[in-house]
Design a protein around this nucleic acid. Sequence first.
DNA 1: TCAACAGTTTAGAACTATTATAATGTAGAA
DNA 2: TTCTACATTATAATAGTTCTAAACTGTTGA
Lengths: 137, 137
Amino acid sequence: MLNNSHYIDKLRSSGLRPTKQRIKICEILFNTEKTFHFTINDLVKKISKATNDKISLATVYNTVHAFKKKGYLKEIPINSDQSYFDTNTSHHHHFYDENQKDLIDIDDADVEPVKVNTRIPGKKIKSVEVLVKVEDA
Amino acid sequence: MLNNSHYIDKLRSSGLRPTKQRIKICEILFNTEKTFHFTINDLVKKISKATNDKISLATVYNTVHAFKKKGYLKEIPINSDQSYFDTNTSHHHHFYDENQKDLIDIDDADVEPVKVNTRIPGKKIKSVEVLVKVEDA
DNA sequence: TCAACAGTTTAGAACTATTATAATGTAGAA
DNA sequence: TTCTACATTATAATAGTTCTAAACTGTTGA
């Protein structure tokens, strides 16, 4: 296990108090090279595997929302009965396999920049997200 | 009001019985040049304005799902607490105004074709959807 | 150090969109 | 007309998420 001081600094520097719940969730989400996609339910399961101290569901929601707001997580736009989050906050897009109900990252180098030649007056672009739905060939 | 026989034929030819509820919903959704985006809740409100005969919520859900399955409606992938549907089933993309919670069509001519230079083995691409999130400038 | 306060966690209730149920109604075929 | 399968309906059930209010804790500053 890595030193948690990194997470403590990260949390503190973004104005979030480094509580033990938040540090634990940081460990689970960010203590790995690999990024991944998850639902709240997935995360709750990971937490209960990783620790004996239970974290309340409300805290999991609060924390995920706080992390999203701070830019440590991205929410993936997809119609589903649950929200999907992504620990990969760099710019990239997704395949969604409609048969397996599975999300797969698309390396950003594999998608030509999307050019949108129109604007909404008084609005600025926040993000451009591409979802490629695939199905069994 | 246009002649409903068109909708009756359309429904019948796709294997859906032309009930008065379905015909009414067809009138509301398709009796206009303009295409539009709506949630189930929006549609329920439109129905209650347009008719005195109330249509039950379950029927609205059933009908929208049936129409989507038949390709008369598209569901728009977006994270929201509600599902959004689109009467424009041709290929096009969307802006989503995060302040007004409003969807806006992007004319397909205003988006350069999205090139995805990678594939999932054994899968074929079903759709490529671009969602441009905007916020107040 | 420690009191005070603001931010955080918590269990559980509440809320919202959606789906399921099962009884009643209706379109279309024979 | 009568039958049957499909549709509609009110309502209950479900599931994900948010709210509430009380208890707890990290941080500040005296």
